[in-house]
């Protein structure tokens, strides 16, 4: 699974980013980094693509979250699928 570094942007009219940040801290797949009243840096590390999606959605739905930007993606070791072209190589 890719490890992602994300930046959460809080809605400027939202008065309680601290509560949202506490909820982020309570989620084991998330590590919380530098935060201020406008933005918060997190790292998401999950065992599967499905879990990753769930976490992303969960963060997006938290109160006061206006947007999420990706700052970093580490690559997994999964071999990507081939495309449909072939070279029908003969060894």
């Amino acid at each position: 699974m890719p490890i992602s570094g994300l930046v959460i942007t809080f809605d400027q009219t939202f008065g309680h980013p601290d509560e949202t940040i506490s909820r982020l801290r309570g989620e084991p797949a998330i590590e919380v980094g530098a935060c201020d009243r406008q933005q918060c840096a997190i790292v998401v590390d999950t065992p599967s693509q499905a879990d990753d999606k769930k976490i992303y959605q969960w963060v997006q739905d938290l109160p006061g979250v206006a947007g999420i930007q990706v700052a970093f993606v580490g690559f997994d070791d999964d071999a990507p699928p081939d495309s449909s072209s072939t070279t029908d190589s003969v060894d």
């Binding site: 570094g5 994300l6 530098a34 590390d45 700052a71």
Partner: peptide, 16 residues
């Protein structure tokens, strides 16, 4: 994985 998590945190935090 440890490297990547540190780097991910550095990148995200530096944007904040």
């Amino acid at each position: 994985r440890g490297f990547l998590k540190s780097a991910a945190m550095a990148a995200a935090s530096s944007m904040v």
